[in-house]
């Protein structure tokens, strides 16, 4: 519907990070409507098979920072 405009940059898509309440395994999947941080969801853990997981984070994964940076930008930055 909105493709006709092509007005701006692509919108970043966040990932949902889940922690298994049984074994503590952390895994991620693309964000789904209804997700929020600290929500307990009934999803199967890929490691132990338990179906109770907690959303511990929803954020956009950033690309690894390049080693060589401009001299103007601080080295710690």
């Amino acid at each position: 519907m909105f493709s006709q405009f092509r007005a701006g940059k692509p919108v970043p898509k966040p990932m949902t990070y889940l922690k298994c309440l049984e074994c503590g395994t952390i895994n991620s999947r693309p964000f789904k409507d209804g997700d929020y941080v600290f929500k307990i969801v009934e999803e199967k853990c890929p490691k132990c098979g338990s179906n109770k997981m907690k959303i511990i984070g929803i954020y956009v994964k950033e690309p690894q920072k390049k080693q060589a940076q401009s001299r103007i930008v601080s080295r710690r930055a």
């Binding site: 919108v11 970043p12 898509k13 966040p14 984070g57 929803i58 954020y59 956009v60 994964k61 950033e62």
Partner: peptide, 9 residues
């Protein structure tokens, strides 16, 4: 005001 970035989280 945009989706939270990893470094912020």
């Amino acid at each position: 005001i945009t989706p939270m970035k990893e470094s912020i989280a």
